[in-house]
Design a protein around this nucleic acid. Structure first.
Lengths: 262, 262
DNA sequence: CAGTGGTCTAGACCACCCT
DNA sequence: GGGTGGTCTAGACCACTGA
C-alpha cells in the first residue's frame, strides 16, 4: 500500500489518477495495460468505486480505454478534435518554423464601433491597439491587428509590445480560456498585399477572433494571412444529435452563408 | 417508486438517465433544477451511486450542471465546440435557407493521383465522380466536386445523383463517422467565378475534405465557396496541455504555414 | 438548520475474455 | 477457472448553500 504521492493530496481518487497519468506519460506506451482496478484498490488502500472514479475520468478524457474482460489500456492519442486557442508563435514553432513580429503600429486608441461591439463594451473605450507583421523564418505570413481594453491591463505596452499578447495577459492574471473565430476569404487590399509581399495572387484569409477569459472579453483581433501560404486544418466529428433543452437558439460551429445579396 | 419505463430496460442507471433526458428535452428549461439525487434514489428504488452514474454521464455530456450545495440543473446548450461532419444541405437548412444542387457532371472515372492518395487507394481506381453547383435560396454558393470509390456502392448513381451523398452512403450501410478538412483562400478561376456568378471579387474559399467511416476512407471532396458570401465559424478551446503517451506524433488541428516559398 | 452535491466504503453478482 | 471490467447496494461523513 502506498500513500498519496506528491500529486494527489486532497482526495484519494486524485492520488490514483495522478499515479495513472504518470504511468501513461512515463513508462507505458500506447496499447499497454494499466494495473487492474482491483490491484489499484490494494495499492492505494481504497475501495473499488474510488479507483473507478479515477479511471472513469481518464477514460472520458480519452487517455485510457476499457475492454471488458481484458483490462484497461493506454488509448491511442486522439488527433486533437478541436481547434485550440493558440498563438501565432506557438503554431509556427509547432511546425518547426521560427516566428517573428514586426510592430507596425502600437498605442492607445478609442474603440471603433466594431471593436466595441465585439468586446461588449462602450464605444470609444480606451484600447491598447497593436498592428504587427507576423513572419515565419523571416517570410511575411500575416498582418495582425489586436485590441485589448486598457482598463484590464493599463501598463501592457509600457515596456514595448510584448512578444506574445496572450503571454502578457496571463502574466497579469488574465487567462485566455476560450474564443471564437470567424474565417473568410477575401481579396487583399493593396496595402495588405504589399506588406505581405504578395506578387501573383490576391486572395487572403481573414480571421476575426474574440478571446475570452471566463466570461470577460479580453481581446479582439483580426489577422490577414497570405492565401497562398496559409491553410487551416480542421478535424470533423460526426454530426451526432444532442439532447436539447427548451428555449434554445445558440450559435453552433460551422459554415455561415450570407444568403442572398442584400 | 417507478420501474424502468419504455426506455431504460437493461440497466437501472439507464432508466434514470432516460428519465432525466426526457425531462430535459421536455418540460424543463435551461437553468431549471432536476430532481435531487436522493429523490431519484427513492423514485427508482436504486442506490445513490446508481443515480450518480446516470447524472455523471449527463454532466460530462454537457446536458446537466452540478452545483454543490444547490442542486443539479439543466445546462445551457453549449455552443458546439467542434466543427461537425455536416452536409451543405444541413448547414443551409439550419440557417433557414433552402439548399439546392445543380448537377454539372456525374459519372464514373478513374481516380486521379491526388484523389487516390487522399483515399489511400490505387491510382485509377474507378470512382463515382460528381460536380454540383450548390445554391441557397437559388443563389450560387459553391461548386462541389466529390469522389467515391465505385466498389463501395456500385449502384450509387444509377437513379441519378442523390440529394445528399452522405445520406446515400448511409442508406447503403456506410456511415460517415469522421473527417478532416483543409481550408484555404485562393483566387477563383474564371470558370469558378462564372459558375458562382461572382462579379467584383475574386477570392474563393476552398475546402478539401476526406470523409471516413470507421477506418475506411469513403469520399474525397473539394468545394469552392464564394469568398464574399461564405465564412467558417470556429469556437476555440483553451490550448491546454494533454496527457501524451509515448510513441506519438499525431496531426493536430490548427493552422498550417507553408513556410518559405519552395 | 435542512437539503444539496462530493467523496468514500466493503462488499456483491454479472458478463466477458483468455487459457 | 481465474481475472477483468460493468453494475449495484446501503449505508457513511464532509463541504457547501440557502432560508
Amino acid at each position: 500500500m502506498v500513500t498519496a504521492g506528491a500529486h494527489g493530496a486532497e482526495h484519494k481518487y486524485l492520488a490514483v489518477r495522478a499515479y495513472l497519468t504518470e504511468l501513461v506519460a512515463g513508462e507505458l506506451a500506447v496499447g499497454d495495460a494499466v494495473p487492474s482496478e482491483r490491484s489499484l484498490t490494494e495499492k492505494f488502500g481504497v475501495s473499488r468505486m474510488t479507483v473507478r472514479q479515477a479511471v472513469d475520468a481518464l477514460v472520458t478524457e480519452g487517455v485510457l480505454e476499457r475492454v471488458q474482460g481484458r483490462g484497461t489500456f493506454v488509448a491511442p492519442p486522439r488527433a486533437d478534435f478541436e481547434m485550440r486557442l493558440t498563438t501565432f508563435g506557438e503554431e509556427a514553432r509547432r511546425r518547426g518554423l521560427t516566428p517573428g513580429a514586426d510592430v507596425l503600429e502600437a498605442g492607445t486608441r478609442p474603440a471603433p464601433p466594431h471593436v466595441a461591439e465585439a468586446l461588449d463594451c462602450e464605444p470609444a473605450t480606451p484600447m491598447h491597439h497593436v498592428v504587427r507583421l507576423r513572419t515565419t523564418d523571416g517570410n511575411p505570413m500575416s498582418v495582425e491587428e489586436s485590441w485589448i481594453p486598457v482598463h484590464l491591463v493599463p501598463g501592457l505596452l509600457d515596456d514595448g509590445v510584448p512578444e506574445s499578447l496572450y503571454g502578457a495577459l496571463r502574466a497579469h492574471g488574465l487567462d485566455p480560456t476560450w474564443g471564437e473565430e470567424t474565417i473568410t476569404a477575401a481579396d487583399g487590399t493593396d496595402e495588405e498585399r504589399e506588406r505581405l509581399q504578395m506578387r501573383g495572387t490576391h486572395a487572403v484569409m481573414r480571421a476575426a477572433r474574440r478571446t475570452f477569459g471566463g466570461e470577460a472579453p479580453l481581446m479582439y483581433s483580426r489577422a490577414c494571412y497570405r492565401g497562398d501560404r496559409y491553410s487551416v486544418f480542421v478535424p470533423l466529428r460526426e454530426a451526432r444529435p444532442t439532447i436539447v433543452p427548451r428555449t434554445t437558439g445558440t450559435p453552433r460551429a460551422g459554415r455561415v452563408f450570407e444568403g442572398s445579396p442584400r
